[in-house]
Amino acid sequence: MNSKPINKFCPRSGKDVREDSLTTYRGNTVGFCNPQCCKEFAADPEACPSDRAYFDTLLKEYELATDLD
């Protein structure tokens, strides 16, 4: 897993992502502001639609930006 998350801010709180709160989503490292939220998401991403929407938006923005290069 790449240790650098695609997001700087937690999708739940808006706080800075912490190094001890990283997991993988769709092959990318994503982060949260605390380990508990990270564990909840990692255990069942399907149960966290707003988190998935946040990460999917970031991934789409990245994809569009790299298509422009």
Rank of each mutant, 00 (worst) to 15 (best):
L68W: 04
L59E: 04
D20A: 09
F9K: 08
A53C: 08
T24N: 12
F55L: 09
T57Q: 11
C37Q: 01
L68Q: 09
E40K: 04
Y25V: 00
E19T: 15
D67R: 07
G14M: 07
R18Q: 14
L64F: 07
L68K: 07
T57M: 12
T29K: 03
T57R: 15
V17K: 01
M1P: 03
V30F: 01
S3A: 14
M1A: 10
N2L: 10
G14Y: 04
A53Q: 13
R12S: 08
R52Y: 03
S3T: 09
Y25H: 02
L68R: 06
E63F: 13
R12G: 07
T57H: 12
I6Q: 05
G27K: 03
E61I: 15
C33I: 00
K60V: 14
A43G: 05
P45W: 00
D67K: 08
A65E: 15
A65K: 09
T29N: 02
S50R: 09
F41H: 00
F9H: 07
R18C: 11
L68I: 09
C10R: 03
G31E: 00
P11F: 02
S21A: 15
R18K: 15
C37F: 00
K15F: 14
F9E: 07
E19L: 13
A42F: 01
A65R: 04
E61P: 01
Y54G: 00
E19Q: 14
